[in-house]
Computed example of a mutant assay.
Amino acid sequence: MPRYEYRCHTCGTTFEQSRPMAEAAAPASCPSGHTDTVKLPSTVTVTGTRPAARPSGGCCGGSCCG
């Protein structure tokens, strides 16, 4: 289940809540019970490496070398 980050306008607390994507825009109460909150923009970090493509067969993939 996705986690969404919110900020409370009343006390300034930033908090997260897990909820279905269909409820992402639904209002959220902060841990102190205030209801004047706003959903913060999501940030996604993708890490990992992918091997670089290596040409095979000579100068241009083997099609021009004979």
Rank of each mutant, 00 (worst) to 15 (best):
G58L: 07
T37H: 05
C8A: 08
G12Q: 00
C64S: 14
F15W: 10
V38P: 03
L40V: 08
C8L: 06
C59W: 08
T10K: 00
E16Y: 03
H34I: 02
G48S: 03
S29V: 02
R54L: 12
A25V: 06
D36W: 04
C8Y: 04
S29K: 06
S32Y: 02
Q17L: 15
H34W: 05
R7D: 01
H34E: 00
A26Y: 09
T14M: 10
P2F: 14
G62I: 09
G66Q: 02
C60Y: 09
P55G: 12
S32W: 02
E16H: 13
P55E: 13
D36K: 00
C64Y: 10
T47I: 12
A53Q: 11
R54P: 01
G62D: 09
K39V: 03
P41S: 08
H9T: 04
S32N: 15
A52M: 11
V46C: 02
G48V: 09
S32G: 00
A22T: 10
P27I: 07
V38W: 01
T43S: 15
C64N: 12
S32F: 06
S18K: 07
L40I: 13
S63N: 09
T47K: 12
P31M: 11
T37R: 02
S32H: 12
V44R: 12
T37Y: 06
T47E: 14
A25F: 14
D36S: 04
G61M: 05
L40K: 13
L40A: 11
R19K: 15
Q17V: 15
T49F: 08
A28S: 06
A52T: 11
V38H: 03
S18H: 07
T35N: 07
L40Q: 14
P27W: 07
R19V: 13
S18C: 11
S29F: 05
P2R: 15
C59S: 09
G33N: 04
D36Q: 00
P55R: 14
C60D: 07
S56L: 11
R3W: 14
Y4C: 02
G33F: 00
A28W: 01
G12Y: 01
T37P: 03
S42E: 15
C60R: 13
